[in-house]
Design a protein around this nucleic acid. Structure first.
Length: 153
DNA sequence: GCCAACGTTGGC
DNA sequence: GCCAACGTTGGC
């Protein structure tokens, strides 16, 4: 079992949306490094849900990988903003996962706190200029994040 | 809204 | 294969 961190802009898709939906495909990732991480995910892995491009950005909850190695259907849809004309059903370029809602932390962990607590080596999201939307989280870091998030305000 | 960081594209 | 131009991400 591995831990991950997955970013989403809450204006586009928030943890509240996932709580409502229960389960959802994580579509639209069009970055090879992020996709390679998605490809290594396994069903049962846990991921920290991170709200980006909002105030304040930070970790807001925990989700679970429900299904691994899912072909992102938006790559074949000419109407989609994620359409990739170079991808074919025979050789799809973009795999992703389906995620399931887990929990919303009573205490969201803002990026500023993440920066105070973790080094860029421990947690890539605190790296300045970091643009990766999917990244692994080492187990020790995950444990501390869980404790911080679950602490009552 | 600004802008730094950085990935991608395309001409050569 | 290089690299300038361009587009996007995402914090502030």
């Amino acid at each position: 079992m591995q831990y991950w961190l997955m970013k989403s802009e809450p204006d586009v898709y928030s943890i509240d949306d996932l709580q409502r939906d229960g389960e959802e495909i994580w579509d639209g990732v069009r970055n090879y490094q992020a996709r390679n991480f998605l490809r290594t995910m396994e069903s049962g892995d846990l991921a920290f849900f991170y709200h980006s491009n909002t105030k304040p950005p930070g970790v807001v909850g925990l989700i679970e990988i429900a299904a691994a190695n899912v072909v992102d259907p938006t790559q074949f849809d000419p109407q989609s903003k994620y359409y990739d004309p170079k991808s074919t059903p025979d050789g799809p370029r973009w795999q992703t996962v389906t995620v399931r809602y887990g929990e919303t932390f009573p205490q969201a962990i803002p990026l500023s706190t993440l920066r105070d607590t973790f080094s860029p080596e421990e947690l890539q999201v605190v790296k300045r200029g970091n643009r990766l939307s999917v990244m692994p989280v080492p187990p020790e870091v995950a444990e501390r994040l869980l404790a911080m998030g679950r602490q009552q305000a």
